[in-house]
Amino acid sequence: MTEETPPQVRLANEIAVQFHHRPPEQAAQAIAQHIRMFWDPRMKAALLRLAAADPNSLDPLALAATREIG
């Protein structure tokens, strides 16, 4: 990631890496739940937009989590 990485992507990826030890489905659910519990709606919306526009910028688990949120 660079300084130009959108903050929502950076933050989602930082969360995701903490759940790499969990089975992917569980991890995605946990990441999604964390984002639901702690993120402002505009950040969630921005993350979903960014995920749609550039899915490769997201950790696969974070990307999976966006599907749970959406």
Binding site: P7, M37, F38, W39, D40, P41, R42, M43, A46
Partner: peptide, 18 residues
């Protein structure tokens, strides 16, 4: 019923204009 912005989120959101 949904959380608001944390301090660093406020800074980021200030820079994106929201």
């Amino acid at each position: 019923s949904e959380p608001g912005l944390r301090i660093p989120n406020m800074f980021d959101s200030a820079l994106d204009g929201s």
